[in-house]
Design a protein around this nucleic acid. Structure first.
Lengths: 239, 239
DNA sequence: CGAGTCGTTGATTCTTTTCAAAGCCCGTGG
DNA sequence: CCACGGGCTTTGAAAAGAATCAACGACTCG
């Protein structure tokens, strides 16, 4: 998930709930089961499930990107997370989904019957840990977004998002200075709790400030990473 | 935790990750261990731990209330949750805490060495489920707050908070129409991402609209629950 | 090539913040 | 017992940041 944390070094550096390292390298029952699980291919904008739907499966993103969101009755939408390859979607103890999930690009998923989780956790102790870790990552991610949406201004919010995506690239071996945005301006707006117009204006401001370049609307090139980081941390005066 | 959900009926109605019901009634290893765990008594405003501290314990609230928060370098603060009696604090797989925790009233905790969790989960399969459930409740709660902070206006935010507290009272057998607020206006402001002044003005507006009464600044009486609910859901025009 | 979606930019409005000050409550101490 | 002090809360007036309303431009896909 998209942890927009201030402390990149805090990433996945150590587990207090640690099992022997060897176990984490070998494949767990969950991993193995997922490799052969049913695949599902989704076009951009196609839904995986809706808020309130019975939770018969959980999903793992293999390719593409998914947005998880909640809405108010009048249609206002808050994206609570973006799920990228490797992320698990739908973990919870409830019978029904508590948010909607929609592919934002061509996406491939693995589908796992929800009932199997319990069984696998019983047969392989590493599965429980894995699920616990996934959930706690998601909680961290939600708290980070909360800090962003609740306390940062428009520029700082966008900077935080770009820094998070940059770090994700870094971890995944991609160029941390070239950020592909699979999501639309509307998605970014609903994630950062801004309007499309404000997101667009803020991109322009970052570009004019020499902090980023916009190769095109969905490809950002970071020109001044330090400045972007300071903005995200709320340490910059203004731009 | 404080799930500010729109759907009270969605509460703890069923677990997809269900173990036989009997198991949930009997005491798990965790519950038993907690009953004899070290107690810690905190005055209001006293900290349990700070963001980044080594996570040597996890805590269960027995009495009082705790706020969990994150800050930006310049001091802006976002409260990400309030923990009430029964709630577990500090669950995650990381070596260090990822938020700060501060008592907001006279609070009694049970302290459990973090290393014990893993061991207990190994020896009692219900413990893993219990932790998993606690974490997924916290995630739900964070997502709800995200929707509130990101999409609702000041009035709707306060209404959502009051409705959440009212439901909590209801579940706990207390009067759902009389809401004690252990937290200050500043705490409410940092939870809802508003300023103290806006929180205060919004209380006044709700009072003048006949929706609540303020016995005193920390005791709210709900006079029109339906109206409050409609406000929280974003279904009311204005007040 | 045209329709439609998505993104950018401009002008104006509005909600909330900021700045300022007064009121209230409660504990302390004269 | 009452005055005093400090923290918390309320209220008011002005300012600011983002939202809204509006229009144009760019790109994509039949």
């Amino acid at each position: 998930m998209l942890a927009m944390t201030l402390s990149p070094e805090l990433d996945r550096n150590g587990a207090a709930f640690a099992f022997p390292v060897g176990d984490l390298i070998s494949e767990s029952l969950l991993d193995r089961r997922l490799r052969t699980a049913t695949r599902r291919l989704l076009q951009a904008r196609e839904h995986i499930f809706f808020d309130g739907d019975p939770k018969d499966h959980i999903y793992k993103v293999e390719k593409g990107a998914v947005c998880l969101y909640k809405t108010l009755p009048d249609g206002r939408r808050q994206i609570v997370d973006f799920a990228y390859p490797g992320d698990l979607i739908g973990l919870s103890t409830l019978e029904n989904h508590v948010f909607s999930a929609q592919a934002i690009a061509l996406t491939r998923l693995r589908c796992l019957p929800a009932g199997l989780l319990e069984e696998m956790a019983k047969n392989d102790p590493r599965v429980g840990v894995q699920l616990y870790r996934a959930l706690s990552d998601q909680l961290l991610s939600a708290h980070d977004l909360l800090l962003t949406v609740g306390q940062r201004n428009a520029t700082e919010r966008l900077a935080a998002l770009l820094m998070a995506l940059s770090r994700r690239n870094d971890r995944g071996g991609a160029d941390p200075a070239r950020i592909a945005l699979p999501m639309t301006r509307a998605d970014i707006a609903d994630f950062l709790s801004l309007t499309i117009e404000t997101v667009s204006r803020t991109f322009t401001k970052l570009r004019q400030g020499g902090i980023i370049d916009l190769a095109h609307s969905s490809l950002v090139v970071i020109r001044d990473r330090r400045a972007l980081g300071r903005l995200a941390a709320g340490e910059a005066e203004r731009i």
